[in-house]
């Protein structure tokens, strides 16, 4: 894999993930086989029908769970079941620690790592400022809204200065307007850090707006049925939704996804209309 140069940041090679049989239930083939090459500094989103293994994909890419077959690579090294230095993960569920203040939450990872106090202060204050949390440093998560708590989690990942950021439906629990604004902040963060970002989402317009490329997963076991390139400029933001090309990309994504979503619901899927299919290629 590493032969094709420094531009490939992380990769999946023939990855499958099978959950072993449990008490009277057959094994579940959740994912794959999957091949993927993530370019350094790109914003890649993954969309797919519910239950298609999107979160499993994050586990494998982040080293939280080893693939059953194949290899996951990060910066040329094969991942096992530990999260390598340089990878940050933000989860869908609120993962802030309720017993710590916002400041302590953000400093948590650096403190465990033994970074020196002045450096921690510098980085935490920067991350809080970046995420618009400076006024809440001494607040506890229970005093914050869901959107603010998710910012805390993003800031907590940000201070670790990850080179690959994995976001597993981070805005899933937020309302639509908050989502759009958080999307803008995510783009700003991506531009400023130069990190490679992988976003798992079920919102097609969100994937469309934020991404350079979007991988569409099939119903379980999740395999890429298409990878759509958006071609947006690097300094895009949520005003992109006004662009007529924006609607066309969302329509293309849905054309791929609709039969899969129907299949996931256990129904007969009609074929993708030819007009849309040719537009996608």
């Amino acid at each position: 894999m590493s032969s094709d140069g420094a531009s490939v940041h992380a990769a999946l090679v023939g990855v499958t993930r099978v959950y072993p049989a449990r008490a009277g239930q057959p094994p579940v083939h959740a994912l794959g086989p999957l091949d993927l090459e993530l370019q350094r500094g790109e914003f890649f989103s993954v969309v797919g029908p519910s239950g298609c293994g999107k979160s499993t994909l994050v586990d494998v890419l982040g080293g939280l769970a080893p693939p059953s077959q194949g290899e996951a690579l990060f910066e040329g090294k094969v991942l096992g079941s530990t999260v390598p230095d340089g990878v940050g993960v933000v989860f869908q569920e609120d993962a802030s620690f309720p017993w710590l203040t916002v400041w302590e939450n953000v400093a948590f990872g650096l403190r465990r790592r033994g970074t020196d106090a002045a450096e921690i202060r510098r980085r935490v204050d920067y991350a809080l400022g970046f995420m618009g949390l400076q006024g809440f440093a001494k607040a506890y998560p229970a005093q914050l809204s869901g959107g603010m708590r998710q910012r805390v989690c993003i800031a907590r990942t940000l201070v670790m200065q990850p080179r690959l950021i994995l976001l597993d439906e981070p805005f899933g629990a937020l309302d639509q307007q908050t989502r759009l604004l958080m999307g803008d902040e995510l783009l700003r963060l991506w531009r400023e850090t130069g990190a490679t970002v992988v976003l798992i989402t079920h919102a097609l317009d969100e994937a469309n707006l934020l991404s350079d490329r979007i991988g569409v997963l099939s119903a379980r076991p999740g395999c890429f049925i298409a990878i759509v390139e958006t071609g947006w400029s690097r300094d895009r933001d949520s005003t992109l939704a006004e662009d007529p090309r924006f609607g066309a990309v969302t329509a293309r994504l849905w054309a791929y996804l609709r039969p899969e979503s129907l299949r996931a619901l256990g129904q007969q899927a009609p074929a993708v209309p030819d007009t849309l299919r040719s537009a996608a290629e």
Binding site: T82, V83, V87, D94, A95, F97, R112, R113
Partner: peptide
């Protein structure tokens, strides 16, 4: 999720 967070922070 707290335990998973602990793992992501090694």
């Amino acid at each position: 999720t707290w335990l998973r967070t602990a793992r992501t922070m090694s």
